[in-house]
């Protein structure tokens, strides 16, 4: 009985690899795009325009205050009603990118606000443009505050990506559902699914911990 289950499980490994690959690819694309978008939004959030800042703030609150599953359903099932057809992968990338961007936006904004105003004044006084102040003075200092929670957020987002199984994407979680129909041992199957996520996330957890320790250094730019 047990033996049969193991044989059957071993036979499912190509499917498991596919699922792992889907989780990694989806997460990677969404985290890269989400990081770029999140930094952009974070910079705008702390920039001059009160209106822009509150619009972004409202969007971020909305996304953070609703379940990710609901967001994915809205994108995948509701947008087509308005003539925007998306395949499941694109819908998953859009939803996860948006979620990542919203969390990262707030992390970046907090980092930017932590830079003492005297730094911005010194940069202003020497005639640096808005972008030069951001790029040369504010962001390098904000990164010290941003990096540890940013990497921690990546871990949370990779785990959140499991929700895309709900719109039929064959990621690690959905592979678990598929395999458990053939191998009726839910404990074992989902234990292995958990191991899969852990293997992806653990290096990031270590990195976050390392960064947190390094932030103690008094000067110099942050190096990974």
């Amino acid at each position: 009985m047990m033996w049969q289950q193991f044989v059957s499980l071993a036979g499912s490994y190509p499917l498991a690899l596919r699922g792992l690959g889907m989780t990694v690819v989806l997460s990677l694309i969404s985290l890269v795009l989400g990081t770029l978008l999140g930094f952009g939004l974070g910079i705008l959030r702390t920039g001059g325009s009160r209106l822009l800042s509150s619009v972004i703030g409202a969007w971020v609150d909305l996304i953070r205050g609703t379940p990710f599953l609901v967001q994915i359903f809205l994108i995948f099932f509701i947008l087509p009603e308005f003539g925007i057809e998306l395949d499941a992968f694109t819908a998953g990338v859009i939803a996860l990118t948006n979620l990542a961007a919203c969390f990262i936006c707030e992390i970046v904004a907090a980092g930017i606000r932590s830079v003492p105003s005297g730094q911005v004044e010194a940069a202003l006084a020497s005639g640096l443009s808005r972008w030069q102040r951001m790029r040369q003075v504010v962001l390098p200092q904000a990164m010290r505050i941003v990096l540890p929670p940013l990497v921690g957020q990546y871990v949370l987002l990779i785990k959140d990506s499991s929700v895309v199984s709900a719109i039929g994407l064959t990621d690690l979680t959905r592979v678990g559902w598929l395999v458990v129909q053939r191998v009726p041992n839910g404990l074992l199957v989902f234990f292995l699914v958990g191991v899969g996520y852990f293997i992806v996330c653990y290096p990031l957890i270590m990195l976050a911990r390392r960064l947190e320790r390094r932030m103690g250094a008094a000067h110099g730019e942050v190096q990974l």
Binding site: P116, G118, Q119, E121, A122, A123, Q136, V137, P140, Q141, A218, H219, G220, E221
Partner: peptide, 8 residues
């Protein structure tokens, strides 16, 4: 007064 050098 507080110098405001760029620490990085």
């Amino acid at each position: 007064q507080s110098f405001n050098l760029y620490p990085h």
